[in-house]
Design a protein around this nucleic acid. Structure first.
Lengths: 189, 189
DNA sequence: CGTGAACGATGACAAAAGTCTATGTTTTAC
DNA sequence: GTAAAACATAGACTTTTGTCATCGTTCACG
């Protein structure tokens, strides 16, 4: 399973990383069942997670304690609460598994060492951050102006696998739509 | 006016940067009137702008050609379309001045040189990127679940100066609310 | 200055989204 | 395997948001 991570890195940084195995060894392998809490709002986020298998939900609670999902991240991607991870401040978001998962977690000291010993890995962090940012910008631009129906169409176009893979409730909270409304609108398509 | 930028940098990186003046000299000083287009969607974003004075609007058009504003950035902050700037791809967003502005612009080659000659400046990019990302995450978490009225309250709490400084039309487009609705809701507060 | 365009507020109405209840189905956990 | 819980859908109704037209006011620019 570590090969998923190995491939992810060599695809981006090339095969000529002589200390790659050493770096990979610093990752902690985590097997998690469905619905496990990976990070709780208020705790510092100690790890960056690479998802080798499964799917994570990044979410907060609104004033009525409903979940609103900022992001859904699937295998072969990185997931963390980066701002807490890099500052050490308490996390403002929660993370949980929505499927059985296999994760590889790297903590802050190892992450620092990795970036210092091989400057190429510095790129990894920049890539994670830029990808996360791009995702956010995309989401804001799409969502601030779209109606509920158009958000669903947006999801069908850009992340169609989510529609078949996840519960309606979760998708609705990702789209910022009430689940009953989501159910009605789906029927109209 | 360059001192605004000088202070911004020394506040973050300390006073002991011997090549600071050389770096500052690579910035281009731009004076812009109100309502000038700084970046057009489709063009590559060639600069990162430091706003010494004034205010910029980052926006896109929705399917009905209404503007939706992803961000409003005021003086003593950085503004760019970072993803285009760092990749060279066409920008997906527009930027314009909403007030008379004084900007300091740095292009990609100078930015690279700056980061290579003094690794401390590498931190600047990371800080810009992290701040931009933090801002986006904050905005998504706040906005996906909030009603129009609660978005206005959110703005009153976190960026109250915008309410007095900018037009209702602009604020409404930043909040993702129709301007007539914004006008009505304001009266209710 | 003066004037034409943009702006802000408001009322009437339409459309979209939210809420609540009920019901049947699927999943989970023991 | 079965009972309990969670899930998906649907109808009736309420609330919120959007749209359009109108009318003073303000502001930018010649």
């Amino acid at each position: 399973m570590i090969d998923v991570l190995r491939n992810h890195i060599t695809n981006r940084l090339g095969n000529d990383l002589d200390n790659l195995d050493k770096v990979l060894a610093t990752f902690k392998h985590i097997k998690a069942k469905r619905n496990e809490q990976i990070l709780r709002q208020g705790d510092p986020c100690k790890y960056v997670y690479f998802i080798a298998k499964g799917c994570l939900q990044v979410y907060v609670y609104d004033k009525d304690f409903n979940e609103t999902t900022r992001d859904i991240v699937i295998e072969d991607n990185w997931c963390s609460e980066l701002l807490s991870f890099s500052s050490g401040n308490p996390a403002t978001e929660n993370i949980r598994t929505v499927e059985p998962c296999e994760l590889f977690a790297i903590d802050r000291p190892s992450f620092q060492t990795m970036m210092e010993t091989s400057p190429q890995f510095d790129k990894v962090y920049k890539q994670i951050l830029e990808a996360s940012y791009a995702n956010s910008v995309y989401r804001i631009n799409a969502f601030v102006s779209l109606t509920a129906l158009d958000r669903i169409k947006w999801l069908m176009e850009y992340r169609p696998m989510l529609l078949t893979r996840l519960s309606s409730k979760l998708i609705a909270s990702y789209l910022g739509i009430n689940k009953d409304v989501f159910s009605r609108l789906k029927a109209k398509l």
